[in-house]
Design a protein around this nucleic acid. Structure first.
Lengths: 204, 204
DNA sequence: ATAAGATGCGAGCAATCACTCACATTGGCT
DNA sequence: AGCCAATGTGAGTGATTGCTCGCATCTTAT
């Protein structure tokens, strides 16, 4: 890794206070999203982000201490959208309906920006992130876990593993559909439901 | 991307003829594997590969025209191992038994080098590869597709999508288990089978 | 033994990288 | 008006990158 500093891990940065700087941060994060989904990790350099955002690198480094912090913030932004929908899904009367709504939410989320979603999934597993980023990921896990424990759904033996399994099934199928450019959300939702409910109902 | 050349896409290299150079190529590819699974994409530089392999960069570039060709060759090497097991699985008397054996093969493959397998999965979807690399991926798809068409398994409506779905389910669950450091292959196999057979049997 | 091809070498180049810092501009305050 | 903090700037730095090229060494065949 090039640069002057060898390996400073924790180094906080200014928080934006005025409307001006809040806008700057927004623009930077969206530039990261656009670069990642168009050019992938290869095109993702701090200079490129600054240029795309129309700000100077200096400004970028006022709010993001490290390159990776950019991705962290983007993960929080994207996952928060998904979590809002996921939380809404919990309001459904039955566990099955809730889980179904959650699957639809995941699909809708993925279809918004497929390449970006897939790449962030990978990065999330790869990089060591700050508390905020980890918290958001954990939040989703808890929502799903609670959902799977509702009375109308079959009890799962190894509770933790079952939650991870269902997450993996959904992510795997939905990411894959994104890669192949599928466009029919309802059709995909039905197939994911087949796998998930099949998994949940199967005899041990 | 640094270097003298702007963007030469196709540029073939020598094929190793003597035992000496065959060994060199082997050593290089294994060095790539070790670097990827220990340091990830960040640590993956051509100079690092050469050093780790104990050869000069010059030697490396005699057999690999571009950095990405290293990963391509590694994908072929790893996937070929899996395909051998997958082909053996087709010998099973029933489609169900064959599919079960295939799942076991995928799990065994993943458990050998979990971090590497996951990373290569991602790269395979990301990079544009040569014919060899694409061929190996396609081969696996065909094996699974044939397997799913055997008489004892439920007929699937959208044949192509169903194959991709099952691949996605297996890959998703198995990769995820690798990330969480699971060690019980039998247990994981049972869970994957629940999802896959649940998916296949579910009513439309 | 000798030639010729195959293989191996590694200093070094141009590009690119992450990131700093000294300074300019702006906005909100009294 | 005048002040200070907040915000914005971008040339520059040292490290690292992918990759070339001229040359040394080894293998094989005659």
């Amino acid at each position: 890794m090039p640069g002057t500093n060898p390996r400073h891990r924790p180094r906080p940065r200014k928080l934006p206070k005025q409307a001006r700087s809040l806008e700057t941060v927004k623009v930077i994060v969206e530039a990261v999203a656009r670069i990642l989904e168009q050019d992938g990790l290869d095109g993702f350099s701090t200079n490129a982000v600054a240029e795309r955002a129309g700000v100077s690198i200096g400004s970028l480094y006022q709010y993001f201490p490290r390159k990776e912090a950019l991705i962290g913030t983007l993960i929080v932004r994207e996952t928060s959208l998904l979590i809002d929908d996921a939380e809404a899904a919990t309001a459904k009367p039955s566990g099955a309906a809730a889980l179904s709504a959650l699957i639809h939410a995941c699909i809708a989320h993925q279809f918004r920006r497929p390449a970006l979603a897939r790449l962030l999934d990978f990065e999330e597993a790869r990089l060591p992130f700050d508390a905020d980023t980890q918290h958001v990921s954990e939040r989703f896990r808890v929502i799903l876990s609670d959902m799977m424990r509702r009375a109308d759904l079959p009890r799962q033996a190894g509770g933790d593993a079952a939650t991870r399994d269902v997450m993996a099934i959904i992510k795997g199928m939905v990411d894959n559909a994104g890669v192949y450019g599928e466009t029919d959300q309802r059709n995909l939702a039905m197939r994911v439901q087949r796998a998930v409910f099949g998994y949940l109902s199967a005899a041990l």
